[in-house]
Design a protein around this nucleic acid. Sequence first.
DNA 1: AACTTCACG
DNA 2: GACGTACGTGAAGTTC
Length: 939
Amino acid sequence: MAFGKGCHLHLIDGSAYIFRAYHALPPLTRKSDGLPVGAVAGFCNMLWSELQKDHGADGPTHIAVIFDKGSHTFRNDLYDLYKANRDEMPEDLRPQMPLTREATLAFNIACKELEGYEADDIIATLARQAREAGGRVTIISSDKDLMQLVGGGVEMFDAMKNRRIGPEEVEEKFGVRPERVIDVQALAGDSVDNIPGAPGIGVKTAALLINEFGDLDTLLARAEEIKQPKRRQTLIEKADQIRLSKRLVTLDQDTPLDFTLDDLELRDPEPEVLMDFLNQMEFRALTRRVADHFGAAPPPAPEIAPVSERAPEDAPAPEQAAFTPGDYVTIRDADTLERWLDQARARGWLAVDTETTSLDEMQADLVGVSLCIEPGQAGYLPLGHTAGGDDLFGGSAPQPGQMPMAQALALLKPVLEDPAILKIGQNMKYDFKIFARHGIRVAPIDDTMLLSYAMHAGLHGHGMDALSDRHLNHQPIPIKELIGSGKAQITFDKVEIDKATAYAAEDADVTLRLWQAFKPQLHRLRATTIYETEERPLVPVLADMEMAGVRVDTSVLARMSNAFAQKMAGLEDEIQQVAGQPFNVASPKQLGEILFETMGAEGGKKGKTGAWGTGADVLEDIAASENEQAARLAGLVLDWRQIAKLKSTYTDALQTHVNPETGRVHTSYSIAGANTGRLASTDPNLQNIPVRSDEGRRIREAFVAGPGMRLVSLDYSQIELRILAHVANLPEMKQAFKDGIDIHAMTAAEMFGVPVEGMDPAIRRQAKAINFGVIYGISGFGLARNLRIPRAEAQGFIDRYFERFPGIRRYMDETVNFAKEHGYVETIFGRRIHTPEINAKGPGAGFAKRAAINAPIQGAAADIIRRAMVRMPDAIADLPARMLLQVHDELIFEVEEGAEEALIGAARAVMEGAAEPAVKLSLPLVVDGGVGHSWAEAH
DNA sequence: AACTTCACG
DNA sequence: GACGTACGTGAAGTTC
């Protein structure tokens, strides 16, 4: 078919994709000979899913993958420093480049490159030709250098983010229409490609100038009219450099191609050729998928040496059988269930999953259990399915063909508690709690979510759907298909058993397959220790804490809510009066308009959505400003906001979270939520109960001990700074911690040469801000904003700090370099946190850098408290006490009156010694404690 | 569902 | 030498 109107050309930016795949994926080698093939694997997976994608009527009629060729292009002739600061290609990526060409051809897709031109130029030329022929173009890439091509039937698609990039998205990024993108790039330059641009001018300023003057030529011609003297001078003096930059960023739409659009027509792959190539690469899962697709038998796998002769890195990927929902069975009687359980006994493992009526494990009723022992062989045991229609009494009849719950649980119990049978689940804490409420303590367990977290924290989420899609290339039935969503959502017990079987059995099947894929990878990614000491054993510990819950006195909360409501009403009246009009005080949009437009407050800034920012820091500035009316309004709104927050998020909401059966609040901790190893608390979040303000702190008075009990709070003192002193080897700081000296005062003394005794509190406060700033990957800007001092002064503090504590600099540099080289950072306990954005260009790199600096410190603190929590139940087993809550560096216990000191002694010992024996810290960990009837007293 | 704001360590 | 800037979370309310 000749390319013309109605045709749709897909152009894949091959080189860019390979780099991203290389950095995003863990290193993978071919089993038989160790050839690095990770980027090739990512590339093939991408091509295959691209070809499988259902575009409807909008699919490609023509397709090509475009590569860079050689490193010398016409741009180097224009400017010899072009891309001069590019790093060498990584050692293990180099041999993969030719393989990706081979891969493209194996998929029967045109593969094009041209000496002396970049892939971008070829793409530009083809896009122009296609456009002129009346066709449409999708460029599969997220490279901003290609954005100049967007428009007139050409758009881009970011395959990683699954996001289409049209003229609006381009304008969002560059601030100008696609036609003017090159003008902005010419001015802003590009540090990654080493394009000089105009010094001191970034994208924002460039867009401003271009929008004002129309285009670059006009701007340069009329540069004298620019008001800002510095900018004007730059544009006049650097005009040549800017023109050169424009030539460098402008893509060549007339590259001499030795082929035409017609040659790029979409063709089906030749099954044998493709499978042969994939098989040679030893991509077994993908080979199998492709074979399934063509209904062909996969070629025999190449010979692989037996396990004993292989290096541990070369563990084989598990054999991947197709998903066959038809094979799932519904378990309706005791004999069938027994046969499944016998299989589990024979195997020594069993994947389990529970289906219930709610996401809240404390309220959920068990509806069914799914089991899986072999990939593809899964069963569903329905126990609590009811017929759709409710009867007069609100109950409903059970659906037929279900075993009695008690009988089924009696059969399951010995297997679920059998120490010789491993129970495998995804997010097992959930199922553990469901079974625990039926008198079954599931053990031992393995958890695919936690396996993924231990190996791949920072790379992606660890929910089952994401893992299945990533590792099995399989999309499980969405729960919404069964229970709907929104108001019409039904509970799982109302789902028809046949449908429930297809869904639930699949979940167990997916879990088992994930487990088989993950388990052998665990040790080669050096994640076994973390998984075995900090993730797996934490499941029952957290489950018990969550089930214990914490007593909350709702009458205290209700009183506070009432008082807050009155105060808010009064403030609202006053606010409307000052504003001179009624408006919604809770609307930042309306408030911003009144403050900055009606009242003319100064110093307002609009966010990316065009709304005025009205955060607390902005309002505080206005409240202290000369504009009396605005100052008064801002002050009132600050007061109102504080109370509104306390009321809606805490005093109101907490009351609704009290469980009617237990009279207590049961939070849920996510173990794999935070990348650094921290826990997160949800429904409700009990890790952000107010404490910093006096008014807020009173909410903690509502968290109380049961009758005859006390609350005990134990928290690590300055744990992150201690870890920093240890890992960055800061002798002065270590000594101060050993001597028990006030660390912030010591810092101030070191930096400003004043004695610790009689320290000015203001100076100490500044030193404290710097100490915290360091942990966050300090910057002059950030510190200046935090302390509200000029930026130069803040930078001076930082310079002096680095001078006094040279280990800090070293730590920061080494950590960032490590992240760049490996794609992850590590805590002293071996927890790996991936930093996929660390080598990205643009502002993301700054974020990634600071995150990389912070992660080993925050992560090590998280490791330490996890280790303490895992040991705690045994350490306090003989005491009438239990652990209730964790707040990052604090543990809260409930203990019988009289046993407080015994508990504090035992728990403190566990916490202070939690790093050992894995790590011997070069300074002590110190734990402070408190006791009281309420959390307010204990803290 | 995205954005803004604000509570915690 | 310029980018844009403190790290990690979850929840509530408004707006689209």
